[in-house]
């Protein structure tokens, strides 16, 4: 049954889905009403056709620029740099941040062949009033951005990416900050892992 095999093979390519799960999903879909399956197919088709990176910040969106970049009530003097679009959701859910974003689309990882050229850095510098790495042209509104908050993951790669960004941004006279590391709120010290506690100790604050 090549059609069933095709679908199974496609599903098995998704992250976290192995051959067995792919088979189960396939047979599950085959048992559902055809309408429901079409709805899924349409949803997949529409995201593939209509969702694109925002030309300003790189966030995934159906409109250009994205709803965040186009929102006049957001603070245009702050840019928070994240690795992936999905990170924006996490920060937005806090309701604590009112600035803009910039999505890198990954992090530096020489072992995987990911260097600065593979990241969405080209459009970041013009936003800060710096020269475009490629064209040398200056774009955006220079001097508007006061602070860049680097919110890459606290992994070795995320840290290296943050340091690299800092080197790029600081010469432009823009303040660069990094998210703090420490204990999860509402957690028990007893259950926090050793590395996190060590980080929290190193970053302790005066009371």
């Amino acid at each position: 049954m090549p059609l069933i095999d095709d679908l199974t093979a496609e599903l098995a390519r998704l992250p976290g889905i192995g051959r067995k799960t792919a088979l189960r999903l396939t047979y599950h879909l085959l048992k559902r009403p055809a309408d429901e399956v079409r709805r899924l197919a349409r949803a997949l088709e529409s995201v593939a056709e209509r969702v694109r990176p925002c030309t300003v910040c790189g966030n995934l969106t159906e409109q250009q620029p994205c709803a965040l970049c186009g929102n006049p009530r957001r603070d245009p003097t702050l840019i928070c740099v994240v690795e992936e679009s999905s990170d924006i959701g996490a920060i937005e859910r806090t309701g604590e941040y009112r600035g803009l974003y910039h999505v890198l689309g990954g992090r530096l990882s020489p072992l995987e062949g990911i260097g600065p050229d593979e990241l969405n850095l080209r459009s970041l510098l013009p936003r800060l009033g710096g020269a475009d790495a490629g064209t040398g042209a200056t774009a955006g509104a220079p001097g508007v951005i006061r602070e860049v908050i680097v919110a890459t993951n606290p992994s070795v790669e995320g840290e290296a990416t943050a340091v690299y960004l800092q080197q790029l941004v600081r010469p432009l006279g823009v303040r660069v900050t990094r998210l703090a590391r420490g204990l999860p709120v509402g957690g028990d010290l007893e259950y926090a892992d050793g590395v996190t506690i060590a980080e929290a100790l190193a970053g302790r604050r005066e009371l």
Partner: peptide
Amino acid sequence: PALLLAWESG
């Protein structure tokens, strides 16, 4: 050198 420096801190 800028890239090398980025990895140096870690």
